[in-house]
Design a protein around this nucleic acid. Structure first.
Lengths: 371, 371
DNA sequence: TGCACTTTGGCAACACTGTTGTTTAAGTAG
DNA sequence: CTACTTAAACAACAGTGTTGCCAAAGTGCA
């Protein structure tokens, strides 16, 4: 790829791009292997590259300090395999979740482990300057001692364009409409910044916690209802970062009026049931929407999260699972589970917005990717 | 990629794979340029490859007979650009549509033009032997004089696994359940065969008719209701070839009973309205489902097709467009159009199942891809 | 008609990729 | 201690796109 004259259309691949791709692949396998580690030959088997190619790639990564040898496996009759692991301290990313009334920030190492965490109150309606100041303060506090901070990922509710990092109208806070959050923060922090929707960030975090490949949906039921989609192993944002508009799916043509102006939106139905204290009913309606989605996208797995789900996870898991199982047009059963991660899910995902490109796990254009 | 020991996980890329990728990219641009052609420098601009790299690639493709020079552009003050075109006769593919009562087969050249066409009656319930005989006869008639037939694509209704080419229970014809159509046909025809759902084939055909990139949905309303999805420029089949199950999306929780056992499926609602002669109402309900899908997947464009739509295209386009426009939560308008192609859409798409891999436009594993 | 200039595209040398063939390292088994 | 097995590195290699340079083929103006 020519970095000077940007091309249109599908990119051609040259040797540096090839090298980067394979290196990212190896790093991703190392990341996925976690504490256990992985040997060169296992990497070769999983990538289809020759052992010698893997040796060369690993050798380069070791020189860069991203990979370390960590013991050996038991012998199977010959020389034992050398275990490789990601050098966790080689890089860090900050993830920030901006919510209506609170901020959560984490410092994450390359392996995905959270090494520091901060919480602060926030008033998203207090104006951009005030909000940016809080963010800058918390980020500074997290990165005070650390070097090698690769960038800052920011996740927040509401529609936005993750490529340009410009917000659209955040629900309830019209003053943010058109605000170039990414560039403003990047200048203030003097670090690369990536911005995305909170559901997308959470979903990315969940995606990276699983082996690559496969498809799942993350349904988030809190003060609103949204979804994140992972299709074929990678986060699907849509062409305008608008994918995952799950809450305003119409489930009842002549149903109750929703704040969006339509009738019978699943969000309105669900939240009405929650307000009435009927969580079982809310779970079943969520299940109907989930079943629509599962059928449409041929999805393997449904994960549930959000404050309302956390109030009674078993009820929601059982309810959603029941409806999907009842529809079951395919032979394969689709498991429904509660999303792990709890209150830090979004902030962790935000940090992964920065790390994911290193592992070839993001379609996000990340400014630090110049090489 | 090592062709002997198949790997698991994301594939590593080596020089042959890189070469193949870039060659496919160039071929796809040539295909997309159609009659007009495209010059080496334009290819370089669109791929980001250097002009010299494009020259080398084009030179190889010309040696293989896939590309020819065809005149020159007007000069802009210097040596005029040489126009390149795909050599249409360099290869052909056969596309076969199997429907409940009829067969349509086309012979397509590399450029996507149909050079021959056959229609025949068919009884899909007459048993595999009888059906295969009809297919073999029609394919033989089409390929009698031609050489260079790259393979045969077959599209038919009902669920199946496109990777293995094994049918599942075709609606209304339980005797096909588990039949290995791809392998059986490949043996009988002594040619590579690819099998896919009819909606997927039609959608692939539509996708190849547009510039690469972008997302759209093709909604097919005939005796049933299905959808094909193109996300980020490539056909999305889902992990088990089950994506596009649009018809059994529930739109009315307490609605009329559907043949699938549920209540309020959009297919049941639409077809009931059609049966009652109320096409406007059917169009609006189709629109509600389409709007759900557009929001969920952030889609750019909706194409409508199928026998029922063809009865009154304007009504459906207007009805669906009205509902989507009314929901419009994003700033961008989503156009709704009738799918071009008419009765040959599926058969043409079936042929494209064979051709698409040459242009890097398919995630389908095609046996002829050994290199 | 001739000359300067612009633009396209090929040729040659090059840097660097993963691959192949071979060797060394580091174990187990008898 | 020897024979065998397995892992990983070393060396030579084929082949990719890139770079630098030059020939080809036009336009435009004196």
């Amino acid at each position: 790829m020519n970095p000077i004259a940007p091309h249109t259309g599908t990119p051609g691949v040259n040797l540096p791009a090839l090298r980067g791709h394979n290196a990212a692949l190896v790093l991703d396998l190392l990341r996925g292997s976690g504490e256990e580690g992985i040997s060169r030959l296992e990497i070769a088997e999983r990538t289809g590259l020759t052992p010698q190619a893997v040796s060369k790639i690993v050798s380069r990564l070791r020189e860069e300090g991203l990979v370390v040898e960590a013991g050996r496996r038991a012998s199977t009759g010959g020389k034992p395999r050398t275990v490789l692991r990601l050098a966790p301290g080689a890089g860090h990313a900050v993830g920030v979740q901006l919510d209506r009334d609170a901020l959560v920030a984490v410092l994450m190492d390359l392996s995905g482990a959270v090494v520091a965490e901060r919480h602060a109150p926030l008033d998203l309606g207090a104006g951009s300057d005030a909000v940016l100041s809080v963010v800058a303060r918390e980020v500074a506090a997290l990165t005070a001692v650390r070097e090698s901070v690769l960038g800052v990922g920011v996740a927040l509710p509401g529609p936005l364009d993750h490529r340009s990092g410009v917000l659209r109208q955040v629900t309830g806070f019209p003053e943010w409409d058109g605000f170039p959050l990414r560039d403003a923060l990047a200048e203030r922090l003097a670090a690369p910044v990536v911005v995305d929707k909170d559901t997308n960030a959470a979903t990315l975090g969940l995606a990276l916690a699983r082996p690559s490949g496969g498809s799942f949906a993350y349904l988030h039921l809190g003060t609103g209802l949204g979804a994140g989609l992972v299709l074929g192993g990678s986060l699907y944002r849509g062409d305008h970062t608008g994918a995952g508009e799950f809450g305003h799916q119409v489930l009842q043509l002549d149903g109750v009026r929703c704040s969006c102006g339509n009738r019978g939106c699943i969000e309105a139905l669900c939240l009405a049931a929650v307000a009435a204290g009927d969580l079982e009913s809310a779970a079943r309606m969520l299940g109907e929407g989930a079943a629509n989605l599962v059928g449409l996208l041929d999805i393997d797995l449904v994960l549930l999260g959000g404050r309302t789900v956390e109030r009674a996870p078993e009820i929601f898991v059982r309810g959603v699972s029941g409806v999907i199982g009842g529809r079951a047009r395919s032979a394969v059963e689709v498991p429904v589970r509660r999303a792990e991660g709890g209150g830090r899910l979004v902030a962790e995902g935000a940090a992964q917005l920065v790390l994911a490109p290193l592992f070839g796990r993001a379609n996000v254009a990340f400014p630090a990717n110049r090489n």
